[in-house]
Design a protein around this nucleic acid. Structure first.
Lengths: 205, 205
DNA sequence: TTTTTAAATGAATGAATATTCATTTATTAT
DNA sequence: ATAATAAATGAATATTCATTCATTTAAAAA
């Protein structure tokens, strides 16, 4: 008997959650370090200390594994982004919380984020999937409210999004590549984030 | 005898430039459609109507092929971006030319651009390479001049870059994904680009 | 303890992979 | 025409790939 007995059939031998977690983590690590083709099922099994066949207990196949990793990261990311957020917040305060939350995620889970970006920029991603309905509803409402209150003028959500978050993601890229721009070091401190944020806010005034 | 006889040894049979071009184009197409692992050397050969061995006449190996594709696109992209640009231009005019030039490239070579983005977001890219020195020098000078003239205040080049181009690349992503944001159509017309550009300029004022 | 169930496995499978190599083909100089 | 040269090739190579399967292991119910 264990804490999950009430959910699963009593005769079941429970799956080792550590095994699945190891597979997930190692898969993302390998993809971030070596690319998608660097993560073969056999090498993944070795890295996660399981048999190749074990992976197929937890995931239908390679594609299923990749998709579930992507969806998991996306879910966590949007959850974190909504931490303490409310579409009724003032435009400046709401957007600032979003920036801070997103930075938190990137700093806490750099490998997850790198995997996410790589997947998103590959043809493996399915853009036509309708996802994160709650998150999108929040964002839509936030934009509507800001317009209603006259904090920003009415505009296409894509234009709003690109001005509000484009600079943020651009900075994050510099931060993660570290030695990229003009072959110069760049550390994304909170004060630099604030500086960029102030400029973005000016754009909306 | 042919028009190149003065460059190459007279006994050489000249390489078929169409073959190399076909290999390059098909490689990018396959990668954009199916990802890196979708471009096997054998399938590429088939798509380009050559023998697998022929690819190795033009490229040392698979890695060399990918790197040369990336460098070629990057070179063309920065060349196009500098079309009619001068670091002595006013800030607003110079930045607008950059936006227009970049959009031109994306519209003219969508497959090249998609390949470029996918490669840039993969671990195959070598961030430590010092590249495009002329382009970078132009950008640096442009920023310096704008500060000198008092058109914008002094700031880190990364912050400048993220505000100046982050929104642009974000819009381009929406444009190329077409049905992405809020599962809504988005067409990046010149007038929408101008609208976003005006907001960006406000950020710098 | 015995039985039942699914988790976990290592070895095996056939298909696909990047690259090579012995030949052939096409071009130009002689 | 012939010789010389490199382009171009198709078939072959050894390796690696994702996936499967017959079997073993572990856990919990009876």
């Amino acid at each position: 008997m264990n804490e999950y007995s009430f959910i699963i059939a009593p005769e079941m031998r429970i799956r080792d959650e550590n095994k699945e977690a190891a597979i997930r983590e190692k898969a993302m690590e390998m993809i971030v370090k070596e690319g998608f083709s660097g993560m073969s099922m056999q090498n993944l099994a070795k890295a996660a200390n399981v048999s190749p066949a074990t992976i197929y207990i937890y995931f239908k196949n390679r594609e299923d594994l990749l998709n579930r990793l992507y969806n998991e990261v996306q879910q966590t990311f949007t959850d974190v982004a909504l931490n303490g957020f409310d579409p009724e917040l003032s435009f400046t305060e709401g957007l600032w919380i979003q920036w801070k939350n997103r930075l938190c995620f990137v700093i806490k889970f750099p490998v997850h984020y790198a995997f996410y970006e790589q997947f998103r920029n590959s043809p493996l991603v399915n853009h036509s999937d309708i996802q994160m309905p709650a998150f999108k509803e929040n964002m839509k409402q936030f934009l509507t409210n800001a317009v209603k209150r006259g904090e920003i003028r009415k505009m296409d959500p894509e234009i709003f999004w690109s001005i509000a978050y484009g600079p943020f993601y651009s900075l994050i890229k510099f931060h993660l590549e570290e030695k990229s721009f003009m072959n110069r070091n760049f550390k994304f401190t909170e004060s630099k984030m604030k500086e960029a944020f102030q400029l973005v806010i000016k754009a909306f005034r």
